[in-house]
Design a protein around this nucleic acid. Structure first.
Lengths: 226, 226
DNA sequence: GTATTTATGTAACAAATGTTACGAATTAAA
DNA sequence: TTTAATTCGTAACATTTGTTACATAAATAC
């Protein structure tokens, strides 16, 4: 077990734990380490999930496999990553996809009861676990906000207002090409260009080279909320 | 404090706690109860959040207030609900919006440290807290999946495939009007009609009254993944 | 059964966005 | 400075979805 100290030390769950305490934890906690060859099925979609997995070596994916044969990768994890942490405490705790090893893999499995014991006995672990889940929620909230933007104009307004807050100025400096910006917004570059020009013609913004100037902040907000 | 026993008993955090234990918890935990009149600002956007709030009475909203004066309600909470639970453990723990009372309100505030102590001493509370966060993550994941569907056809395919799984039959019985279904999908009813007819003409489905028959499951999946 | 109300299909048109192609402008390299 | 490469604006056309209006079908009420 000590051979994985370095990986576990970097695992988000144990990051706030001091080295001697980590050793103690490793000695006390009830876990099992399983090795998988490449392309092994670690767990099937719909199977009960009552352990978290910490990847000690290798790489895995959670895949959605359709009856048509198509496979979509939902998530990918490597050494030091945890999977299953949001599932074990949920009401219906089943895997949302098939867990597959992409290379020779070693996984440390911790049963839910062991996780609970760990959290109770080691407050840094409890906090880290809560933080892991909380940061995930905040990240998902952000993504939903972005995905909820309907029109190209709304996406541009959202972007500009966020940058205005970040850069603390109506003069926004772009750190990427318009093509890349369009990609991040999930739209086509010529469409982005078209809408930017329209907004300039309407007097909301001006732009030149790597800069966009906000000329009508209020109208940007109103367009965002439409 | 005992006067709020009924509300707290129904609070998701204490639902798995037995009555005598709940009394003990209430006596031991360090908390403060604050009363607010209607339309009072409980916390401002960007303010530090290091307490969770449990609503004992009344109703609050988290609002996004724009400089243009417009207000968007992000979330609403009533007696028994908890707010801030995903924030206190996050890296940057500030309120994402302004917390406002919509009526005369009493809130029980629990500092992060008290929450940690509670979780350590009462495993049912720990589990409930984890479950709260976990269920939220699963719900947000689901919402992202739905919001990621681009075209009307993809939305229909997704819906039909989910119902196929639920109803275990290619004969899908609709439990709502097509107008309501369109609303849930975030599209217009005539547009839904149009696409359903197109899909029928292409041989993917058939429909009559309250039933849709899946005729080409494989093609539905392929359309979903485009 | 009849009358009324609601749901649905459908057509026509409008609006928004994607796609393709190419020239102009800008940036990078020699 | 010149040349090459990349980025961007723009036009034309295609596709998708929204919107409006109205007729028909289905469901509900009496």
């Amino acid at each position: 077990m000590n051979q994985y100290l370095a990986v576990l030390k970097n695992c988000t769950l144990f990051r706030e734990v001091n080295p001697s305490e980590l050793k103690e934890i490793l000695n006390r906690m009830k876990s099992k380490i399983v090795s998988y060859p490449t392309e092994a099925i670690i767990a099937g979609e719909g199977e009960n999930c009552d352990h978290i997995g910490i990847i000690l070596a290798g790489e895995i994916e959670i895949q959605k496999i359709y009856s048509s044969g198509k496979t979509v990768t939902m998530a990918r994890f490597q050494a030091g990553n945890i999977f299953g942490e949001a599932i074990i405490f949920s009401k219906q705790h089943f895997y949302p996809g098939t867990v597959v090893s992409r290379s020779a893999t070693k996984i440390l499995f911790l049963h839910k009861t062991a996780v609970i014991a760990l959290c109770r006995n080691y407050p840094p672990v409890l906090e880290s676990f809560m933080k892991l889940l909380s940061e995930r929620i905040l990240m998902l909230n952000k993504k939903i906000t972005e995905l909820s933007l309907g029109t190209i104009r709304q996406k541009i307004c959202f972007f500009l207002l966020e940058e205005y807050k970040k850069q603390k100025s109506p003069l926004i400096k772009l750190t990427m090409s318009k093509e890349t910006l369009a990609e991040h917004m999930g739209i086509q570059r010529p469409s982005l260009s078209r809408e930017l020009i329209k907004m300039r013609e309407e007097g909301l913004i001006d732009f030149k080279k790597k800069y966009i100037t906000i000329k009508n902040l209020k109208q940007l907000e109103e367009s965002l909320l439409e």
